[in-house]
Design a protein around this nucleic acid. Structure first.
Lengths: 173, 173
DNA sequence: CGGTTCTTTCAGTAATTTCTGAAAGAAATA
DNA sequence: TATTTCTTTCAGAAATTACTGAAAGAACCG
């Protein structure tokens, strides 16, 4: 695919962003390309456009599918696998949040709970230390629970709540 | 400092967490140690406790100070610099969010705006592509603006809003 | 001052992560 | 079934990132 300067800049920046948040640069670039692409594209086109190895493209596509960020589709009259990306930014954010919660936050909470229990059982431990471990656990559980609730709010309502910004505070005394 | 099993597990997990989110393992471990520590500690104690080079500890401390996550303090009768970590999880989250916004989101938005303008000016560009670039820019600006508003809500009110979870949706029709 | 203690810098090394290319695998076609 | 086309796997190479140790720098002390 021919990239114009705007697309190229977008893809490079997205790759940079990925690498700062623990996602490999090429995964993020492939994602950006698919997000921008006007239609389904196949692996060889990604290889040519981004100048990365065909095998790497295959791995990236697999990872993106694992996150639900892209979908494998078929194009009539073409044997090759094609891919399209989720186009709605809000859905995108949800998929990423959900994935990271499952892969990172949930295990983190499990470990923190274990730390807390170990600390509580250990007579030799400083009570302040035990208390701080528990506080961190509780905070993350509480944030996580809040997210689980909020993600169930219907999109249009959420949009309005967002638009209200700090004004939601009015409803609480 | 003598680490009991709960502290050690906490620190290792925090380090692991850091490395998945683009923070070096030792920075996160030093932070975890300071968070747990019952009082101010100095660099050599961190070196001994975590078994990392003294120079590395110095770098980690500097970075953590840059984020405002730890503070340099002095202990009476001791020339050495000591450090304490922010203890409140909520403040912690704010500092991290604020730091990442400034370092990553704001530059991202600037680049996306530039992409959008370039795309709009380019006659040869697919209108759908230009539209998707603009959509991503707008989405991130809107999330970013929401965050700026929410962070100004007083802590107790925010706490109540959080506790309401999905029930805030009631206020919108 | 000269010595001592503590901190920082930075070039080089080590460790980790990412990417590539060759080869095997799978699916369609002739 | 043999051939072609497309996809995946994976061992090793390359690139990146993190860490160390030596040395310089800074602050204090006698």
């Amino acid at each position: 695919m021919k990239l114009n300067p705007a697309m190229e800049r977008f893809i490079l920046q997205w790759g940079e962003m990925g690498s700062r948040w623990g996602v490999s640069r090429s995964v993020a670039q492939v994602h950006a390309l698919l997000y921008l692409a006007p239609g389904p594209i196949h692996a060889d086109e990604i290889t040519d456009t981004l100048s990365i190895a065909r095998s790497n493209v295959s791995m990236c596509l697999k990872e993106l599918q694992g996150w639900g960020l892209i979908e494998l589709v078929h194009v009539m009259g073409d044997r090759r696998d094609h891919f399209v990306a989720e186009q709605d930014a809000w859905n995108l954010m949800n998929l990423i949040a959900e994935g990271r919660k499952q892969r990172e936050i949930d295990p983190l909470v499990a470990t923190l709970a274990r730390c807390r229990d170990e600390a509580a059982a250990d007579k030799a431990i400083d009570p302040g230390v035990a208390q701080r471990i528990a506080a961190m656990h509780d905070f993350i559980v509480s944030m996580s629970g809040w997210y689980d609730q909020v993600k169930r709010i219907p999109r249009p309502i959420l949009r309005k709540l967002m638009a209200m910004g700090g004004k939601v505070a009015r409803f609480v005394k």
